[in-house]
Computed example of a mutant assay.
Amino acid sequence: MFVRVQKWGNSQGIRLSKEILNQANILIGDELEVISIEDRLVIKPVRKIRGKYKIEDLVAKLPPNYQVEELDWGSPVGMEVW
């Protein structure tokens, strides 16, 4: 696939076809990493976890003697079934 560098305002950019984006599993709005290696550009999606933390990291921070306990959240407020 050949593309042309184009000017958009004070920036330059390239357009990528829907097929190329589908093959690379890139969606509109995804964050991309662009790196230059010698005379090549490498563009790849940044794969982030959905939240700020990984569950494995959070569980690893629990103290060894942690005991699960039941909490009372009060009476139902809406249509909850208890």
Rank of each mutant, 00 (worst) to 15 (best):
L62Y: 11
L71S: 03
N10I: 04
V59M: 11
W8R: 13
I14M: 11
V68C: 03
S36C: 04
E69K: 15
R47E: 14
L71W: 06
I28L: 13
R50Q: 07
E38N: 11
N22T: 01
N65F: 10
D57T: 10
K52Y: 02
D30R: 04
I55W: 03
K18S: 10
W82L: 11
P63M: 06
L58Y: 03
K48I: 04
R47F: 14
I20M: 10
G51P: 05
V81I: 05
E69S: 14
E80R: 00
R4C: 02
I43K: 01
K61P: 02
W73A: 11
W82Y: 15
L71P: 01
E19I: 08
G51C: 07
V77P: 00
Q23A: 11
S11V: 05
I35A: 08
L62M: 11
I37L: 07
G51D: 09
L71D: 01
G78C: 00
V77W: 00
L71M: 05
K48S: 08
I55M: 08
K54Y: 04
Y66C: 06
L16D: 02
I28P: 07
M79E: 10
E69D: 12
V5M: 04
I20F: 14
K61T: 12
I49R: 15
E33S: 07
D39I: 04
I49D: 10
I49K: 15
I26H: 08
K44S: 13
I49F: 14
E38F: 05
F2P: 05
M79G: 01
L62A: 10
E80C: 01
R40D: 14
D72Q: 05
P76R: 03
R50L: 03
P45L: 08
P76W: 01
W8P: 01
K44Q: 13
E38L: 06
R47M: 12
S75G: 02
K48P: 00
E31L: 04
I20L: 14
V42N: 01
E69F: 09
K61A: 12
D30P: 02
V46S: 04
N10H: 09
L62G: 04
K52P: 01
L21T: 08
N65C: 09
N25F: 06
D57E: 15
S11P: 01
A24D: 00
Y66I: 11
P45R: 09
R50V: 06
V46W: 06
Y53H: 14
N22F: 01
E38Q: 13
E38T: 06
Y66A: 15
S36R: 15
W8C: 09
A60C: 05
E70D: 13
R47T: 09
Q6C: 03
R50C: 00
F2C: 09
G78W: 05
S75W: 08
A60F: 02
I49S: 14
E56K: 13
R15G: 07
S36A: 15
Q12P: 00
S75M: 10
